[in-house]
């Protein structure tokens, strides 16, 4: 009997350590619901479409989750995506070199990330406002370059978005690679450890002599890089630059990261969870689409899901705070704890 309890506790402990568990369950539930409502949902081609669509949000979410784990936020990633796509479109059309365009857009995006990190760290500005400002800057630069014109690119350069290797879509492979790299970075490198440490307490991190500055700047740089990569993938898929590219993705990505179990307050988080979060959100779009819901309702649904995700995050923080208070009450033998116990018994 006692052994059984112990093993149950073990299982519970293991499961609660897997932050992405709830989003995986949510994905399964969603799949069941949609497959009942729409026969088209269960088709392999539909699944593939969902996964390919998720790869753009998923790749960005991996970078973003590091920023959120440091206790920050980056809402400029949607604009970095557009900027990167713009740079790609003009370089590839101008030089007809895929490699040059690829490198140019990724370096631009990475630099944009560095700038975010430097502003947040050195100027001690609130990440929300800082990246709101840089969002406008990057967006403005991109629109200034394109003059809001649509710029088609040659089909020959869209392998990253539409190509297949061994019949597996390339974007999916890139997503897989980025997820693995992200997961490795988080749990096996010093950087990953420091990211969580800084998110737990920047003061303690500084006192423990950790490279706080480098960690924060690197996290924003990573978010910039992944947004840039997503930008190249997206323009490769659409085979042309539109000025609406990437609008609102930052919010989908934040929602994905939070849904995946990363605490908005920083500290604990999960790379894999963030990717699952992205898949979940794309699934909702996909399901709504199959159910022929009005496309104008998508935003509202996304908003509601984000709200739900944030309140789940909030509730778990509140629960932790309450446990601490209760521990204290127990220590001093407060009568309110006795009452709690009594009601529990009754």
């Amino acid at each position: 009997m006692k052994n059984k309890e112990v093993s149950m506790d073990r299982i519970k402990e293991y499961l609660s350590s897997k932050l992405w568990l709830s989003v995986v369950i949510a994905i399964i539930v969603l799949c069941v619901v949609f497959s009942i409502l729409s026969p088209a949902f269960l088709q392999w081609s539909n699944f593939q479409a969902v996964l390919v669509q998720s790869s753009i949000t998923g790749i960005m979410a991996v970078g973003l989750c590091f920023v959120i784990m440091t206790g920050g936020i980056d809402i400029s990633i949607g604009a970095i995506l557009l900027l990167s796509a713009t740079v790609f479109a003009y370089t590839v059309n101008g030089t007809e070199s895929f490699m040059l365009a690829f490198l140019a857009s990724l370096s631009t995006a990475t630099l944009a990330g560095v700038l975010n990190g430097v502003l947040v760290y050195y100027f001690k500005m609130a990440p929300m406002i800082t990246t709101l400002a840089t969002y406008n800057i990057y967006n403005g630069i991109a629109l200034h370059i394109s003059k809001t014109e649509n710029v088609p690119i040659d089909r020959g350069y869209t392998f990253l978005g539409n190509g297949r290797i061994a019949n597996i879509p390339v974007p999916l492979m890139i997503l897989l690679a980025i997820t693995l790299i992200g997961a490795y970075l988080l749990s096996h490198t010093r950087f990953g450890t420091f990211v969580r440490a800084v998110g737990d307490s920047q003061v303690s991190a500084t006192e423990s002599n950790l490279p706080t500055r480098r960690t924060i700047v690197s996290a924003y740089t990573l978010a910039g890089f992944t947004a840039g990569l997503a930008g190249v993938l997206l323009i490769s898929r659409t085979a042309g630059l539109q000025n609406s590219l990437g609008v609102g993705t930052e919010f989908t990505c934040i929602a994905a990261v939070v849904l995946g179990g990363t605490a908005l307050s920083g500290g604990s988080g999960s790379v894999v969870g963030s990717v699952f979060g992205a898949v979940f959100l794309i699934l909702i779009d996909n399901g709504l689409n199959l159910l022929q819901a009005s496309p104008f309702i998508y935003d509202a649904v996304r908003g509601i899901v984000l709200l739900a995700a944030v309140s789940v995050d909030r509730m778990s923080t509140a629960r932790q705070a309450k446990t601490l208070l209760e521990q204290k009450a127990l220590r001093i033998g407060s009568s309110i704890i006795k009452q709690v116990k009594k009601t529990a018994q009754a």
Partner: peptide
């Protein structure tokens, strides 16, 4: 205390 709650005891 100056610990990092999200990290393991070893870390």
């Amino acid at each position: 205390l100056s610990l990092f709650p999200s990290l393991s005891v070893a870390a």
